[in-house]
Design a protein around this nucleic acid. Structure first.
Length: 481
RNA sequence: CGGGGCGUGGCGCAGCCCGGUAGCGCGCCUGCUUUGGGAGCAGGAAGUCGCCGGUUCAAAUCCGGCCGCCCCGACCA
């Protein structure tokens, strides 16, 4: 009986578990188009809440939304040398339209830097036009070899911020501002702790001067790059002639940044918190935060219980809590419990005749624990439970990450960790491509970031984890998605 | 693109080796009884067995080709 709806346990096959959780929670489904997924309402609801939170944060920091075309003239991509090298191999190209072959093929955007700089060149004349702080919510296409629901799909949804500034310092500050904003979102909303830092040359965005990233550690101890913020220098400005006149009358190229997070975040959320029962969704991003399950035998009981259930729903809804009353008949309460648990609803309120008599409801948490709460002041109890669950998820994720973070690793230990259970390995790095490559070949681990100061070890590692020569910097290694 | 696995009612699978009129569980529909942790009984609907070709009196089953999907690797958010 239990087997029919079994979710593959994490310990048995993490990938199968991940897919099972998504299917059971009805977050997404495979589409008729290879590599493309359908995001179902329960999954899209999470994305919408993510969008709302991030969009608010972008606007608070002075950014405005705009929209640029899906199609980019192929020649645009070629204007920035590194950029074309990085992206040309994974583009989809439209060669025909309206039954005729196009004069110039159109690339379906893999990212929008090129078309945005082509436009900024028209719009920016003077330092008085700067900064330009743009964001767009869009879909993009990257022809990936191998896809996985949410984590890597041929088409995906994201936001891409693009900013232009008069000075390098200002653009770098922007790059940093957004990295911090992403981190805050991931921790405060997704309850997903991340390490921030700078990417090595080999891992940076094609066309950037420097790439910064947020890296989370999933339950299988693989790292997930959850967001990136790039300092682009004047690379795209030069490629597209985006110049402005300075206060002293000279011409200069704008300094710019770009940054993005995608529907991959939904995958990160799943792999950070969920369990073998199904999805666990942090309350702040849960499309349904509370489900009310009425319990009754007779018609008389049904009427009484549903009346109270309805009142509870109205009260919570009025308080801004996303709540649902599960009135389906012919389904036993236990069946409903299992269903809503697999869908990740953080709080369940059970209202039966005995509860109605006592003026209470049973409050069960997705993360465990069930206790009666008085109907009087229920909103406060529910709110408290949601807040506590949110905080507990972050704490648990942080503990898990710390338990799987190893500092001061040297060669043997690094190999041992990566051949074993994985995790974040901090160690010294000499800065050579040779060591970076050798480590990747031997362990399949890559340098996720050169960590920001607050994540660094004290004392700093003195020697390179691989070659033993003097370390110039500390690095974090992990196998990654 | 390399390796592995799989395509059979909506979902999960058996049947294939040994060819002979397609079966099980879940889900779905109807009715009655149920409902405090995955309900029971009765009745019912639903499948060109991934596609194309071959062998055969006869193909889900044997042979050839193709397509698709999932997982692992190289590439990537």
């Amino acid at each position: 009986m239990a087997d029919r709806q079994r979710i593959t346990p994490r310990s048995e096959d993490f990938s199968a578990w991940y897919n099972d959780v998504i299917m059971r929670a009805e977050l997404a489904d495979y589409s008729p188009v290879r590599g493309c997924m359908v995001i179902r309402p329960r999954g899209y609801g999470i994305w919408e809440l993510m969008q709302q939170a991030l969009d608010g944060m972008f606007k608070e920091t002075g950014h405005e939304n705009a929209y640029f075309p899906l199609f980019i003239p192929q020649s645009f991509l070629a204007k920035e040398a590194e950029h074309v090298q990085g992206f040309a191999p994974q583009t989809a190209v439209v060669t025909h339209g309206g039954g005729k072959e196009l004069e110039e093929p159109l690339v379906v955007r893999p990212t929008s830097e090129t078309i945005i700089y082509a436009m900024l060149s028209k719009w920016i004349q003077s330092y008085r036009d700067l900064p330009v702080l743009l964001n767009q919510w869009a879909n993009i296409v990257r022809w990936e070899m191998r896809t996985r629901l949410f984590l890597r799909t041929t088409e995906f949804l994201w936001q891409e911020g693009h900013t232009a500034h008069a000075t390098a310092a200002e653009a770098e500050e922007e790059t940093r501002l957004i990295l911090g904003l992403y981190r805050r979102f991931m921790e405060e909303w997704m309850a997903m702790p991340v390490i921030t830092g700078v990417k090595t040359e080999s891992e940076k965005f094609a066309g950037a001067v420097r790439t910064f990233a947020c890296e989370g550690l999933m339950q299988d101890n693989k790292a997930l790059q959850a967001g990136t913020s790039h300092f682009l220098g004047q690379n795209f400005a030069r490629a597209f002639g985006t110049q402005f006149q300075t206060a002293s009358g000279e011409l200069d190229y704008v300094w710019s940044s770009s940054w993005g997070v995608s529907t991959r975040l939904v995958g990160g959320l799943i792999m950070t918190h969920s369990d073998d029962v199904g999805l666990v969704c942090p309350p702040r991003l849960a499309p349904t935060q509370v489900v009310i399950v009425p319990i009754f035998r007779s018609d008389d009981e049904r009427i009484r219980v549903l009346e109270v259930g309805g009142q509870v729903m109205d009260a919570l809804r009025a308080g801004g809590i996303r709540v649902l009353l599960d009135q389906r008949e012919g389904m036993k309460p236990g069946a409903k419990y299992y269903e809503w648990e697999s869908r990740g609803v953080p709080v369940r309120l059970e209202v039966g005749p005995r509860d109605v008599d006592k003026g209470q409801a049973m409050l069960a948490r997705r993360t465990g624990g069930k206790a009666p709460v008085p109907l009087d002041g229920l909103e406060i109890s529910v709110r408290t439970a949601l807040d506590e669950i949110q905080a507990a998820l972050l704490a648990a994720a942080r503990d898990r990450r710390e338990a799987n973070t190893f500092r001061g690793v040297e060669k043997d230990r690094l190999i041992e960790i990566m051949d074993g259970s994985g995790g974040f390995a901090f160690g010294g790095y000499c800065g050579s491509d040779a060591c970076e490559l050798a480590i990747q070949e031997r362990t399949k681990a890559t340098i996720r970031v050169l960590p920001d100061e607050e994540f660094r070890s004290d004392p700093a590692p003195a020697t390179c984890a691989w070659c033993g020569k003097k370390a110039v910097v500390e690095a974090v290694w992990a196998r990654a998605y």
